[in-house]
Design a protein around this nucleic acid. Structure first.
Lengths: 149, 149
DNA sequence: AATCGATGGTTACAGATGAAACAAATACGG
DNA sequence: CCGTATTTGTTTCATCTGTAACCATCGATT
């Protein structure tokens, strides 16, 4: 092993990033073509579809997005009337975000597409392999989160 | 399994992207603090450090970057005099890019840091787990590349 | 209840990004 | 050769991004 040289193509951070980028772009094509959404917008839709109602802050945590991304994505979905804001009764800084009928319809359209996409990915590995891979992801996530706070 | 709902936190594309983003940011802090590089610049440095001399095109393929990113990163590293361009004798569209002394020094400084970073990641999983994980990455990469061309 | 720090969220700004248009050179079919 | 298509690389432009500044509100302390 030459330790003066780094093999980029087997460097874990690079491989991870490249794969994630590739996968993410491919999937982005789905919701972009279909619904004209950006990634932050898709994540907001996904977050609210899954949880029913969230504040901007919780939404950001739940979907790992910077608050400015959340703010802008929410504004856009509101403009389309795919979500609505309900002021909190006790804390006027907060608004509860909920999908409208139209938003739910869009979400309902995306869910099977997302699942189909994921299924294709999973099939690229076997089910057993996938479990191992998932576990690896988990360990890494956990490791990264430790170093944080 | 409710098939009307997608669990974002276990959705593979999302998990991959989130982890890659986290890891990438953390590592970016290293080369940013240390050398003031952006990610594209770091990749150019890494590509040339590893391969000695490349054209912009090859560099782009080798490091999975859009040609405009390559173009700009190369321009910046040239401005710093970390790399130099040598015109190709047979094809005047092409320039061969090589690191200067200063560029090599920076690369030499980064390699052990990169390896240390990767080692810490690897240790988050066992060695056996890592092999499985690597294999999973490979399968996914391959699968994604198939769908391409 | 007045003050002061923390919190939820938006906005302004500066930098990074990719699609598309571009320039310069080469390849290739007639 | 000539003209056209292709390749390499840069630039332009419109969009996306995060940092930092900001505003309004809340909570705790006095």
């Amino acid at each position: 092993m030459n330790d003066k040289i780094l093999e980029l193509e087997s460097f874990l951070p690079y491989r991870l990033y490249r794969l994630a980028d590739l996968v993410s772009r491919e999937f982005a094509a789905v919701y972009k073509d279909r619904l004209g959404l950006t990634r932050p917008e898709w994540r907001v839709l996904a977050g609210l579809g899954q949880h029913g109602s969230l504040t901007a802050k919780t939404l950001g945590e739940q979907s790992a997005m910077h608050k400015t991304k959340v703010s802008r994505a929410v504004a856009e979905l509101e403009r389309r009337r795919w979500l609505s804001r309900t002021p909190d009764e006790n804390d006027r800084r907060i608004e509860h975000l909920t999908l409208t009928k139209a938003g739910l319809a869009a979400y309902g359209e995306m869910v099977p597409l997302a699942k189909a996409f994921e299924r294709r990915l999973s099939q690229a590995m076997g089910a057993a392999r996938l479990a191992e891979f998932d576990y690896g992801l988990e360990r890494l996530e956990e490791f990264m989160r430790e170093g944080e706070e």
